[in-house]
Design a protein around this nucleic acid. Structure first.
Lengths: 342, 342
DNA sequence: CTGCGGTGTGGAACCGGTTCCACAATCATC
DNA sequence: GATGATTGTGGAACCGGTTCCACACCGCAG
């Protein structure tokens, strides 16, 4: 409704002075400023961010591309990002990216390009070289969480090490027949993370000289249902049953525990289960897990981005491909113990 | 980078013609249009939505305020909204609204007002009269999902009827000692829904002439953990144990089932449990529930909003406070049966 | 042949701010 | 007292589109 010129008229100053008074850039005497502020308040004036963006070139808005919303890790990250952005006075525009290629291109070539966002946070998505180049050519900083690609700053835990560590915990307890139930290695949006975890698992097994074959890995959906279904099928036959399972994510681990309980298999007496992530439900299920902290990953991503946005004096010719590894913490609970005697 | 005037120069026409050719408003000969489109493609031109919004007054952007992200119902709704908005060429700006009053005011008085959003969807939030008026005075349509207030269009299931129905199912099976474990009645962002469900429960109990007292309702967090904790405490004492529980949400019901299993209480032989929502995990736990379809509620909200946005010839003087009740479906599974013989 | 409605196009104003530049006043410095 | 730096303010250009208006051309009815 009310525009800057209305404020100017009311305060009896020029538009330029109003702009300076309200934005805090440039010289304005204290009395003038007060008069302007009062006038603005009187008519309920709020800057039009459109008009402002048009001339300044930045929008105070960050685009977030994310493949899932209703999955624990992603929801947590999103929450962390949202909180941090709002606190910094930024808006968050959300784009859920499915595996659908057409939709994905649309987001990149239509939505993200229209000078609407200052920067992009990509969560759990492996961006293509082209996508990154497109964004960079527009001068938009990108930071990734989880999946990544060279040419952009990335935050994530070291998934290989995480899986390795949690597997070693089982090995250390004396387990030898260990299975990995994790994310499908098919091309998926969040493919990378789970192939890394699989890699960590196999490395640990190989280092310990334990048998590892096709049967040792079972792909599944990353969800409680996925783990449950896989669990039922794996645990059905007592002879082929492993003594321990490394789940690719806590949801999967929880599903497996539920399946085990249902089949009357004691956890951990007959079956040890470990997960990765530090899911909210882990304590409730007594799940031993390697916890990460997705919320603070979100916060940190925002901080990185804002730094880059304000440091934009030197126009992003910097290394740019720095990989920040996030800390994890081992949370040992009641789902792990030494293997049953044969 | 490239602006409309660049396209104009390349295609050897005026800016006005480029605008018409690309937006499809006004007369442009087919040859000219082709030339313009080709020129635009050649230099990778994309309209600046800022500039465009500045003059047209609308932004093709919808603000969504929502209290939780990582809770099933809210995540689903958000997904539905996102999909529908993107499909319609709209952006979605996300504001998570905590109970924190200051933050809430900030969102309303600062973020939502800056001519950045064309409309607002409020999910599970009881907006105050002031908030609604503020938005309406700016000519921004609002639609609510779940919590609502007069003066705005709202979508939700009939929570009273839902709770009543599912309670009656238990009563019909012969249960008489029924408890309700549900959302706290303290002032919370999504308070309304759960007070409605409690009301439906009490109504059903009263209608059936069953005893209902303070002990019959147990407030809890709406989460699996919340249900689990409440479940452990309720089910601990065999003498005071109810024969059936109506959970205020499926998460809670699932938590209760897990608690029951852990205590060695057979569901449904010794304890029937029902929920409301139709959570993804309900089938896995054999949970009998009254299912709603949050994703399509999101979609529907978007449709309503877009209708209002395009019909804006008559500037929203219409009834405006229409309450659309959403369909639910009863999904009977294995968590319910007749009460055990005394 | 004149007049009129439908097409097609360009010029220019405008949306609502920000910022460069010019100018004035004040104050400290030499 | 002249010089120059600091502070305060207004005018005007500009960001990148959209749209009103004027004008030209066309075909067709009277």
């Amino acid at each position: 409704m009310s525009a800057l010129s209305d404020v100017a008229r009311l305060a009896e100053v020029s538009k330029a002075t109003v702009s300076r008074a309200l934005s805090g850039n440039g010289y304005v005497s204290i009395e003038t400023r007060n008069r302007v502020v009062a006038a603005a308040a009187a008519i309920g004036y709020v800057v039009s961010s459109n008009a402002s963006s048009l001339v300044t070139g930045h929008t105070k808005n960050v685009g977030v591309v994310i493949p899932f919303i209703n999955r624990w890790f992603f929801g947590e990250v999103l929450e962390g990002i949202e909180t941090a952005l709002i606190a910094a006075g930024y808006d968050l525009t959300l784009y859920r990216l499915s595996a659908d290629d057409a939709a994905r291109r649309r987001v990149f070539e239509y939505f993200l390009v229209r000078k609407r966002v200052d920067a992009v946070i990509a969560v759990g998505i492996e961006l293509t070289r082209t996508e990154v180049d497109l964004l960079r050519s527009l001068g938009k900083p990108i930071v990734g969480i989880g999946g990544a690609v060279e040419g952009m700053a990335t935050l994530s835990i070291d998934d290989v090490a995480a899986a390795e560590l949690i597997t070693e915990l089982l090995i250390g307890l004396g387990h030898t027949r260990i299975m990995h139930v994790g994310g499908s290695q098919q091309k998926q949006v969040d493919f990378r993370v789970h192939s890394q975890r699989l890699k960590g698992f196999t490395q640990a097994m190989r280092s310990a000289g334990l048998r590892y074959d096709d049967e040792s890995f079972r792909p599944t959906d990353i969800s409680i249902e996925g783990g449950y279904t896989a669990g039922l099928s794996i645990l059905a036959d007592p002879r082929s049953r492993p003594s321990a399972i490394v789940a690719g994510a806590d949801e999967v681990a929880i599903g497996i525990i539920i399946a085990a309980r249902q089949l009357g298999i004691q956890v951990p007496a007959q079956l040890s289960v470990v997960g990765i992530d530090g899911h909210d439900l882990a304590p409730m299920f007594g799940l031993t897990t390697l916890a990460q902290h997705p919320k603070s990953q979100g916060t940190m991503a925002v901080r990185l981005l804002l730094d880059e946005l304000t440091d934009l004096t030197e126009p992003l010719d910097r290394p740019a491909s720095n990989w920040n590894t996030f800390p994890v913490s081992l949370e040992v609970r009641q789902s792990t113990t030494a293997p049953p005697l044969p």
